[in-house]
Structures are given as C-alpha cells and as structure tokens.
Measured scan of single mutants.
Amino acid sequence: MASQGTKRSYEQMETDGERQNATEIRASVGKMIDGIGRFYIQMCTELKLSDYEGRLIQNSLTIERMVLSAFDERRNKYLEEHPSAGKDPKKTGGPIYKRVDRKWMRELVLYDKEEIRRIWRQANNGDDATAGLTHMMIWHSNLNDTTYQRTRALVRTGMDPRMCSLMQGSTLPRRSGAAGAAVKGVGTMVMELIRMIKRGINDRNFWRGENGRKTRSAYERMCNILKGKFQTAAQRAMMDQVRESRNPGNAEIEDLIFLARSALILRGSVAHKSCLPACVYGPAVASGYDFEKEGYSLVGIDPFKLLQNSQVYSLIRPNENPAHKSQLVWMACNSAAFEDLRVLSFIRGTKVSPRGKLSTRGVQIASNENMDAMESSTLELRSRYWAIRTRSGGNTNQQRASAGQISVQPAFSVQRNLPFDKPTIMAAFTGNTEGRTSDMRAEIIRMMEGAKPEEMSFQGRGVFELSDERAANPIVPSFDMSNEGSYFFGDNAEEYDN
C-alpha cells in the first residue's frame, strides 16, 4: 500500500510504541512475548500442572481467558453494579484439565481477579502490559475465525453469508486497541457500523446529549479505520460520505453494504499476525530463551520457528480426527482463516481442507461434555516452508469459486491468482447506482469489472525454506488448481455463540 510509510507498523501498534527502528520493534515485541511466557509459567505453578498438562491447549485457553477477564475493567465495573446470582464479580476462573488415573478430569478453578492481575503485572515488570493482553485477544479471535462461520451475524446486519472472507476479527472485544483495529476485516468494521446506525434509528437519543457526542466521535473513528483499509480513492470518498452524514440511517447502511461487497474484489488491507497460545510461549521462556534479547516478529519467520520446536497437546472428542484438529489450530496460529487453501497447503506441506470436510468441533470443551471418553493427542503445528504475512489485500483475480465463501483475504505475501467468483459478486451490483453516491458507485463498479483474471497478485513473492531466515531465496510455489480455494466452501461450520 502506498501510504505504508505514514502508518505505524503493526509491531508498533502491538507494543504501543512511538516510531521505533526494526531492532527496537523486535525487542519490544519480544518483551511482550516474554511477559506472556513468564505469566503462563507462574500460572502453571499456581495450578500445580504437570509439564504435559501445561502444554494442553484447553488449559492455555482457560488461563488466557482468566487474565483477560481480570483486566476487563468495563465488564468488571458492570458486574459490580449489576450483581447477578451466583456470579462473584471479583473472581474469575474456568475449567482446568488434569490427568488422573490414566483419565482426563475437569476441575473448575476460581481465583481472585486481583490475584491474577498481581501475577500478570509481576510477570511483566510491574506494568499492565496491555500489548500482551491484546495479543491474547487476537489469538482467540484468530481461533474463532478458523472455527466458526459468522453466517447468522452477517444475515442479521443485512449482509450476504458468502462475504465471510471479510469477517476477520469479528469476535475481537471493543477494547483491543490499535492492534485489534489493524486485524479487523472490512466486513467486521461494516458490521460494527451498521449495528451502531441501527441503534440510532431505533433509539432517538442515541446521537443526542453528552453521551451522543461520545457516540458520534466513536462512529467517526470507526469510519476512519474502515476508510484506511480501502485502497481505492472511490471507496475512500464513499467512506467520507458515510462519516460526514448528519443523521446516519438506511442510506448509510446501503452504502456500507455496497462497500463491503466491493471489497470482495477491490480488497481492503487487513493486517495478519501470528499470535500463538500462551502454552507455546511459556515452555520456550522456561527453556531459557530470551525473546527480548533475541527479538521477535509476528509477521516473519519467528512464529514458524517457534511452532517448529513446540509440543502442544489437545483434548480430542471420541469421533474427532486429531489431524483435522491440528489443521484448525495451525490455521489459527498463522492467522489464515480466509487465505486461499492452495497457498496454505503449499506452505504447510500437507493438504489443507475446507472447514466442512474437517471432523472436528471447536477447541474448547463445553462444561456439560462427558470427560470419560476424552483422549488427548499432539497437535501437528509444523510447516514445510515459511512466508511473510501481508497486510495488503493483493490485486484481484477471477477463479472458480464456491457456493460458500466467494473470495479470499490473503494472509501471506505469496504470488498467486486470487480466487473470487466474479459473476456471483457482480450480480449483486445491478441497477442500484442512484442517489448521492452514484458517481462513486459507478466508478467502483467500473474498477471491479476491469479486474483481470490473468493478473498475478504479489508478483514474484515466494515462500522460503525454514533454514532461509533472511528470506534470501524465494520459492514461487505451484498450486494444484483442481483443489478448492475457499475454506468455508459450501460450508456447515458451527455458528459462533458468545
């Protein structure tokens, strides 16, 4: 993207840094990872977990959730003011799984939030270390993106479920800051804005008074975040219109849905970061690795190297396929839920299948599930090659597409044709070009129609051997075009429920 120079890199967003050079960025990201790792080690000690239990991804998720809940100030305040039966607002906890007599047992633990905050700050040299908290939120978000298709949420806001490739980060909490905003897809931002506008339509006082002023500035800020994701002048001009509207209503909703559809071809720039579970960072720190000293990046080879040398386990339900569970977590670790499966298959070195073909449910185990038949197995999170994460949407291309997802959002900077089903997408653009945004709409449609099938995206960008740390010898991959490109292809993934 041309304006790259004016933006802070995501590592800076990730670490609240002012302008830093590459070495400083690597050190501050490393410091953040160190903090998460030290916190995780301490929690495993508190909970008396064995090494194996500490490497269980379900335990990692519970521990991450506990610290996120302990620092969720708004919710904590709300819980104190609106006490609900049987919930102690000062405590947080969740299921911890232990191996007892050759069987997995679930144990519900409860801790004072104050105590968890103390352990977290102690692991982070006394700081609140917001960057580390956001990092864990993005890992949870990436896992949700890989596990669930947001059909219901899309339909509720009037969008087409086939636009799911635009929904990265749709389950990120509001408090995820600049680093969170960077990884949100165009569809996620559109959905947040539509929800806001709908509230304004239904509630006369939404934009009024002292609160209304705050609401208005939040609305304009979200519009600017979305505008910054678009790469064409016409899309940005249309966002200006939406932002400046005196009284946002149905016309703005129409414009936003139009823009979301246009992003299936004229893709937005959305950041991709490899955020790993805390149970990967903990053992690495415990083994003596100093992330701050060595430096770390979320968008280069580092996460690949770390996963190459990590042992992570997962509980497996009786009829689940461990290899499929591994694929789910591998995609989440690489922030690749909406990437082209052919690119992923090449990088991973084994075939990556669409969601609907995987015999696996989510990673988390519900409290009512029976533990008797639970097994555990090693997650295979290694890769054959590594590639640089991208934040450009890439230019655009036609490809055989599917009944489910009709476009992709690249996660890796790797040369390819970008699949999208042009006739299906263009069919949504018939007729409606009147109104105050008509010239911009016409211009956007013209650009979409001009998108050429034979153009290559990320020209000359390749993948790298894991021994090639400096990215000196790019390998331009070859793809098996007979395979499906979309992950949520004609899909039956479970729906995400809060």
Rank of each mutant, 00 (worst) to 15 (best):
R261E: 12
E369M: 08
W120I: 11
S482K: 04
T45P: 06
R461Y: 12
A271W: 09
D127Y: 14
G126P: 12
P173G: 04
I63E: 09
I257H: 15
R416V: 05
T396N: 02
T396L: 04
T430N: 02
K214Y: 14
Y487I: 07
F338K: 10
W207K: 10
L328R: 04
C275N: 10
G94Y: 10
F304Q: 13
T396Q: 01
C223Y: 15
W207H: 10
V463P: 09
K305G: 13
R361T: 04
A251Q: 10
E454D: 15
R470Q: 08
K48I: 08
C279P: 08
G490N: 11
Y10A: 02
G228I: 06
F39G: 04
E443C: 10
M371Q: 00
N483H: 15
N319K: 02
I201H: 05
G93W: 11
K184A: 03
A218L: 13
I225H: 00
L358A: 08
L259W: 07
K214I: 08
S310F: 03
M440R: 01
N498S: 08
R117C: 02
T437C: 06
D255F: 11
G209W: 11
N319R: 00
N321P: 08
R384E: 03
A411R: 00
L298E: 08
I475F: 12
S383Q: 03
N370L: 12
F458R: 10
R221Q: 12
M196V: 12
G249V: 12
S60H: 07
S326F: 11
M374T: 06
A260F: 10
Y496M: 12
K7V: 11
V299F: 14
D480S: 01
A442T: 13
S28Y: 03
G17H: 01
L381W: 07
N397L: 04
M371N: 04
F458I: 13
R355C: 10
M137Q: 07
T215Q: 12
K293M: 10
D340L: 15
M239W: 05
E465R: 02
R38W: 10
A218F: 09
S457A: 01
D497A: 03
R150L: 06
R55C: 09
F464D: 03
R199P: 05
N124K: 12
R441A: 15
L466F: 14
E375Q: 01
Q12M: 01
K422I: 08
K357L: 13
M137T: 08
N309I: 00
H135A: 05
H135E: 09
S9I: 01
E469T: 02
K77P: 02
L143I: 06
Y385I: 15
V352Q: 09
V29S: 03
R156T: 02
D160Q: 01
C223D: 12
N76F: 03
A263K: 09
S9L: 00
S335Y: 12
A70C: 02
L256M: 14
D491K: 06
A251S: 06
E53V: 08
N125E: 05
I194G: 13
V343K: 08
A336L: 15
Q327H: 07
P173H: 05
S274W: 10
I63S: 03
M456T: 13
V329S: 15
P161M: 06
C279F: 05
E80N: 04
S486E: 10
P318A: 07
A263V: 13
T378W: 07
K325E: 15
Y111E: 05
Q399F: 15
P354A: 15
G185Y: 08
V343F: 12
L418E: 08
Q4E: 00
R236H: 06
L61C: 13
T437A: 14
Q20S: 03
F464G: 01
V299L: 05
A22G: 08
S141C: 14
P161N: 08
P477F: 09
R102D: 07
A2R: 07
F458L: 04
L49D: 14
W104N: 05
I316R: 00
G209R: 13
Y78I: 09
A411L: 09
S217V: 00
T215Y: 05
V363F: 08
R152C: 11
G435H: 11
G450Q: 03
I425V: 13
T147M: 09
E494H: 14
R74A: 00
L154C: 06
R26C: 10
P303L: 14
E14S: 00
E73G: 04
R102C: 15
V109C: 05
S274K: 10
E11F: 07
I253N: 06
Y281T: 09
T146Q: 12
D439L: 02
R361W: 10
G460H: 02
R8G: 01
S245K: 04
A366D: 04
R199T: 04
E469D: 02
Y385A: 06
R221Y: 12
R317I: 03
G404A: 13
C223K: 12
L108G: 03
P410A: 09
S3R: 00
M163F: 15
P173Y: 07
I301P: 13
P453E: 07
R391Y: 06
M456I: 02
S402F: 14
M371Y: 07
V285E: 05
G187W: 05
A401D: 06
L79K: 10
A332E: 05
M222H: 13
E220N: 11
S245N: 12
C333H: 08
K91L: 05
Q327P: 14
F338W: 00
K91Y: 07
V408C: 02
G356Y: 10
A366S: 04
R246N: 02
E494G: 15
Q364L: 01
A403L: 00
S176E: 11
Q459R: 15
